[in-house]
């Protein structure tokens, strides 16, 4: 222990913040070092002055203060949060916490990415369908050295029971389909859309609750504007859904619907995080 280390830790030593082993080292040093010992005395003297200052100036609460507190406890209505709790809303208070809002924002980002990916796949599939149609309309391509046609028994996925038996192997038993009919591409896309829509709706519900908690804190003008914008977006969502009902495979209607949801979520997020 040298003087520099000792003096650097002297305050913590006096506050009792050092580990016992370190405090012992300092104590031992103070016995042999007059300069550090003088520094300790000075700090202690200062501390004494501050202690006296506090003792002399600390305010004693007047007896009326307790009466005032008691009266407030009996007469003042409970804060909004507690009233909500009694109404059964208390369990949603956590929704207004910044951490929850941040997590919701993150979840929304993932939803947005999913929606973008879905839209991309939709477009790609539409293009593929178009190309396939063009190819079907064209005459079949004859085999050529550059484009050979594989014989049937070279294609492992198409198991031919007769050929397998000839080779002395066992034919794979026909697989029992888990579903009577496999999903078509359209059905897969529609399911993906429905899942994305559900995720948006969940996020909207969470944000809606968070906003409801904070409604009293927000400027009435902002709330009015928010409600008007929300109504417009809800109209867009309803219109897109109507179009989709009439034309379930219309990629533009699907994209419109998801974009409207994204806008709604952005708007609500903006209000919830104000």
């Amino acid at each position: 222990m040298n003087c520099q280390n000792c003096q650097a830790e002297l305050e913590d030593f006096l506050y009792g913040e050092l580990k016992p082993s370190r405090a012992s080292q300092i104590r031992a040093h103070l016995i042999v070092c007059s300069s550090c010992s003088a520094a300790r005395d000075e700090l202690e003297h200062e501390h004494e002055i501050f202690t006296q200052y506090y003792e002399q100036t600390a305010l004693e609460p007047a007896p009326e203060m307790w009466e005032a507190i008691r009266s407030r406890l009996h007469t003042e209505p409970l804060p909004q949060k507690r009233i909500n709790f009694r109404l059964g809303w208390g369990k949603f208070v956590w929704l207004s916490r910044p951490a929850v809002i941040r997590q919701t924002a993150f979840a929304l980002l993932i939803i947005l990415l999913t929606a973008t990916a879905t839209t991309f796949i939709l477009r790609r599939d539409t293009d593929k369908d178009r190309n396939a149609k063009v190819v079907r309309d064209e005459p079949p391509v004859s085999p050529s050295p550059a484009n050979p046609v594989k014989p049937v028994d070279d294609q492992p996925n198409q198991a031919n029971p007769a050929l397998t038996a000839q080779r002395g192997g066992r034919a794979n038993p026909p697989r029992v389909a888990s579903r009577s009919k496999p999903l078509t591409d359209e059905e897969i896309i529609n399911r993906q859309i429905a899942r994305t829509e559900r995720e948006y709706q969940n996020a909207i519900r969470l944000l809606d609750q968070a906003i409801a908690r904070r409604k009293d804190e927000l400027d009435p003008g902002v709330i009015k504007q928010y409600e008007a914008s929300l109504a417009l977006i809800d109209n867009s969502i309803a219109a897109s859904r109507r179009v989709l009902r009439d034309h379930p495979t219309d990629p533009a209607a699907r994209q419109f619907l998801l974009t409207a949801y994204a806008r709604k979520v952005d708007l609500m997020q903006d209000i919830a995080m104000r």
């Binding site: 506090y54 100036t57 600390a58 305010l59 004693e60 609460p61 007047a62 203060m65 307790w66 005032a68 507190i69 407030r72």
Partner: peptide, 24 residues
């Protein structure tokens, strides 16, 4: 805790009336 809390608040706001209000 009335005294330490009131004094702590008074140290921050340095206004007895306000300190009492905030301690309440």
């Amino acid at each position: 805790y009335g005294r330490p809390v009131l004094s702590f608040i008074n140290n921050q706001v340095h206004n007895r009336e306000l300190a009492e209000e905030l301690a309440q």
